[in-house]
């Protein structure tokens, strides 16, 4: 366990060095809410869309920050640091676990203050729900990190990853309830509606809204469903991450 924490320490410190990126992303977030959210909410029929949207954008930024660990891996591949990590007195399990936890923590550290602003705007009514929701969201960002690690080592090419991420971002975000309630997705296309039911972003967005007290358009009336789903999703990718990491990297280098 101590070694896992050391891996966490390394990755969290490293994250703080991406200052420019962090500032730019925060700006993106503020622009989304202060411009798009404000304007779009006038146009959209659903009640209090501004709050609904702000909560959704928080989940989007949480997701993309957790995905960021892939770029760390590409940078390490470029400098051969992956071999160094693989040579250390450390099991693959400790390594991947440490990295996923670190990535979860850093996403949270970073998105936390932004979420606080959102929560302030929304006005929280039930702190216990919020605590549960936030905890689940931490598990969510941990799972997304495992997903990102899996994808990065499975693809092994930063260019391809970038392109795939473009497509994936669009897909994963659009077929989820981050930006609009499920009824509209369902109305547009029943197949989309079905997929959105299994999308981790849907679960995360739902939980955050539930915790923040925006209960009008929840996909699942029982919060246990998204909580369970997120736990399953995260354990699955943490596990897959470890297996793929071993299989794909120990064959002999990155190419």
């Amino acid at each position: 366990m101590k070694k896992v924490l050391l891996v966490v320490e390394r990755d969290v410190k490293r994250f703080l060095r991406y200052r420019f990126l962090l500032i730019m992303r925060a700006l993106w977030f503020i622009v989304q809410i202060a411009l798009f959210g404000l304007i779009a909410s006038r146009m959209v029929v659903i009640e209090n869309y501004f709050q609904y949207y702000a909560a959704g954008v928080s989940i989007i930024i949480l997701y993309s920050t957790a995905m960021f660990v892939s770029y760390d891996i590409y940078e390490e591949a470029e400098h051969g640091v992956i071999d160094y990590l693989l040579s250390l007195p450390l099991s693959r399990r400790e390594l991947v676990l440490g990295r996923s936890i670190a990535s979860g923590i850093r996403s949270f550290m970073y998105v936390g203050p932004l979420m606080a602003i959102v929560l302030f705007l929304i006005g929280v009514t039930n702190p216990l729900n919020l605590a549960i929701a936030l905890f689940s969201l931490f598990i969510f960002s941990f799972g997304v990190s495992g997903f990102a690690i899996t994808l990065a080592v499975a693809i092994k090419s930063e260019d391809r990853f970038d392109i795939l991420m473009g497509v994936l971002d669009a897909l994963i975000v659009r077929i989820s309830t981050t930006l609009y309630p499920r009824t509209f997705i369902q109305q547009a296309n029943t197949f989309y509606g079905l997929i959105s039911n299994f999308n981790p972003l849907t679960f995360a967005a739902d939980l955050f809204r539930w915790g923040a007290g925006i209960e009008k358009y929840l996909t699942f009336s029982n919060p246990l469903i998204p909580i369970m789903a997120i736990i399953i999703f995260s354990s699955f990718f943490a596990l897959i991450g470890i297996v793929v990491y071993e299989k794909r990297l120990e064959g002999g280098g990155w190419q």
């Binding site: 891996v7 320490e9 390394r10 390490e76 400098h79 640091v81 071999d83 160094y84 040579s87």
Partner: peptide, 22 residues
């Protein structure tokens, strides 16, 4: 290693300290 496997943005002391810890 034959080719140093280090992140370029890291400081020497940080690299070695972390190595010692791990």
């Amino acid at each position: 290693f034959q080719e140093p496997k280090l992140l370029w943005v890291d400081k020497v002391i940080d690299v070695l300290n972390w190595h010692a810890k791990i």
